[in-house]
Computed example of a mutant assay.
Amino acid sequence: MIELNADIGEGHEDDALMPYIARASIACGGHFGDAGSMRTALLRCAEYGVAAGAHPSYPDRAGFGRRRLAAPPEEITRWVAEQTETLAEAAARLGLVLAHVKPHGALYNDAAADAAVAGAVVEGVARVDRRLAVVGLAGSQLVSAALAAGLAALNEAFADRRYYASGRLVSRKTLGAVIADPDAAAAQALALATGGPLDAEGGAVTITAETLCVHSDTADAFKIARAIHRALHRG
């Protein structure tokens, strides 16, 4: 059964999401998050038996990490390592261990398409703990870089985002890029889980993934997660 994940600790109400997800990526200071929010998110994961991971980003709070920052690979590596280590230390103080790292926003998209950025992200993860899995866009440069470096990798797909026929995500700047209807998101999740084609911009696309994401900042995210959870378990 394919798992459901969410990005949490980003200033939204996460409690209602937790019963429906198996994995959570926690904002760790780059685009959002502080000691208090990280601790709260980690405790939520522990309470619900959810695997916790780091959600590092370009250090851009004003843009919520959704703007690309031009930086050399070694700088990106440092950002990823520092943010991941911050969350790992917070987890250790609670007797918890992180399971994965998933970049956020523009860093996620850049690592999906740019081999140099992907390599920098993977190096940052490896500097903290080589046992951490890397979560990246299905079939992306990031997944390839993680596997090439000997790290575990999870191919991720999105239940609440539209795709191009190329397998890339439609930009959030495009009207309709985010799927806000729970039934539509559940239908896309079921197609992803069963290997069926998605109705994508420019044609159809088939994506193979091990984990599906629901964004906590989508309106009524918990309703989307609940609908997907029901569809997957019913299917």
Rank of each mutant, 00 (worst) to 15 (best):
A204M: 15
A90V: 11
V214C: 02
P19Q: 03
H12K: 15
A99C: 14
E10D: 12
A112S: 03
A22C: 11
R44Y: 07
R67E: 15
V50W: 00
Y20W: 04
L154T: 15
L154M: 14
A159D: 12
C45P: 00
G119Q: 02
S37L: 08
W79V: 05
V80S: 04
L4D: 01
T174M: 14
Y48R: 05
A159P: 05
L232R: 00
L137D: 09
G65A: 11
A88N: 11
R172D: 10
E13W: 14
S25N: 08
L96G: 04
A231M: 11
S25R: 03
T86K: 09
A133M: 15
A120I: 08
P56A: 08
A189P: 00
N5V: 00
D220C: 10
A153H: 08
I2H: 06
A153I: 11
G95W: 06
A133Y: 11
L212M: 01
S171T: 12
E82W: 05
H12L: 15
W79A: 03
D14C: 02
A116W: 13
K173Y: 14
H31R: 12
A115D: 07
L96F: 02
R67L: 14
D160G: 01
R93S: 14
H100R: 06
H31A: 07
S216E: 04
Y163E: 09
R230W: 13
D110E: 15
Q188S: 04
Y164K: 06
Q141A: 12
A71S: 12
Y48M: 09
A113M: 11
A227P: 01
F32Q: 14
S37P: 07
R161D: 09
R78C: 12
A88E: 11
T40L: 12
Q83F: 06
L212A: 01
D114G: 02
E85D: 15
V170P: 06
A146S: 09
E74C: 11
T211Y: 00
L96I: 04
H55F: 05
L212D: 04
A51I: 08
A115N: 05
D217W: 06
R78K: 12
L151A: 10
S166I: 10
A126S: 07
D110I: 15
G196D: 15
A159R: 01
A90L: 13
M38L: 05
A145M: 02
I8D: 02
E82Y: 07
D183W: 09
L142P: 06
A16P: 00
E82P: 09
V214E: 00
G150N: 09
C213Y: 01
A22L: 09
L142G: 01
N5H: 00
T77C: 09
L198K: 07
L232K: 00
M38E: 07
G9H: 04
A126H: 01
E210G: 13
S166E: 10
A186L: 03
